[in-house]
Design a protein around this nucleic acid. Structure first.
Lengths: 193, 193
DNA sequence: CGAAAATTTGATCGAAGTCAATCATTGTGG
DNA sequence: CCACAATGATTGACTTCGATCAAATTTTCG
């Protein structure tokens, strides 16, 4: 898949871009085929890029007191970055790790800002992507505040039915804010009432 | 304070706007002096406006199984709306309530979309506001996932030292995802160790 | 195949929730 | 402008969900 085809896909998914804008974007985007377990960003680093996932999946996670806590998963057609570092230019609190072999399109903040300033349609696209992310975060907050461990798990299954085939249970558990053991018990049909 | 002065303030706070853009914005914005306890939005309604708070403060809350759970507070210089309904055009899961007598500037979605399409600088401003909101939501998620009840409370005090003077403890407790009783115990100095 | 990683299962514990009963503050109608 | 009802906050007793610790079992992969 060429960079141009990927940018067409992004334009089709999120918001239409002019030919001139697509060309500008393609100019400074980098296609990255990378292996599973690659760390795109480490804690403390400055994350100056965001990544569009063409193929594969990735997660953002924290290490807190030795514990690995997943904060975000992204799959084909989505973006992933250390949002705190990318948008505030502070050191990243997150690691970003590939959960499968991936094909990514890397876009630097400088490039995004430049093209945003130049093309109204790209500024619009960025706004759309950020808005969608904001709404997903809002969803996650509702899930953390209202649901029991079991409901949280059923909720994520409703949104991503086959996540268990692609993401380790440890990561799903910490993403849901529950322990691995609790998730395991929830999944055991004997414990259903 | 005139609408024009308020829009200057928004422009100064978030991102610079051209004179022509400010004029367009002022044209369709409405200045609303409203009383404490007014509901701007009720559950189930379509929230077609966002509100810039010139003076006062407000909250978004859910009613779930008879329980009142605060989801968001906004003060002077910030925007408030039922973000889910405003951005997805679905019925609002939230109520929006004024916690003090307020002066608000109301902006409709239609108007925001129209001016965004017309003025690149306003599209940029909207992007900035949404990005800031997204980052605040991310902060809130970290707080819900990592902190004990006491840490969450200390955290919000660090961000908004005088929130307890303006917002009822019930609302703060439900916002933090803890019970009112637990918050009360945390605040009692005898229980500090 | 075997070592390491992932998951399951079991036993125990604790932070915070719930229920219930005051105590304090606020705002309104007489 | 006070009284008292309504709302908000505190305190106490008890319970529970899910965490933690520990060990066994299953899966993955070099």
């Amino acid at each position: 898949m060429t960079k141009e085809a990927i940018i067409d896909q992004i334009s089709d998914t999120y918001a239409p871009l002019s030919a001139a804008c697509k060309e500008q974007l393609a100019g400074h985007a980098t296609l990255l085929p990378l292996h599973k377990n690659t760390l795109l960003v480490k804690e403390g680093e400055y994350a100056d890029s965001t990544y569009y996932i063409v193929k594969g999946c990735a997660r953002a996670y924290y290490l807190r007191e030795g514990k690995d806590i997943s904060d975000w998963f992204a799959f084909e057609g989505e973006f992933i970055s250390s949002i705190v570092s990318f948008f505030t230019q502070r050191p990243s609190p997150h690691y970003i790790e590939l959960l499968e072999d991936c094909i990514l399109l890397e876009l630097s903040r400088d490039h995004i800002e430049k093209v945003s300033g130049q093309f109204h349609d790209f500024e619009h696209l960025v706004r759309i992507v950020v808005t969608q992310t904001m709404l997903r975060l809002q969803e996650k907050i509702s899930s953390l505040q209202f649901y029991t461990a079991r409901q949280k798990y059923e909720n994520i299954l409703a949104i991503r039915p086959n996540i268990t085939q692609r993401v380790a249970l440890t990561h799903i558990a910490s993403y849901l804010g529950i322990s691995l053991e609790t998730l395991s018990r929830i999944r055991n049909p004997r414990n259903r009432i």
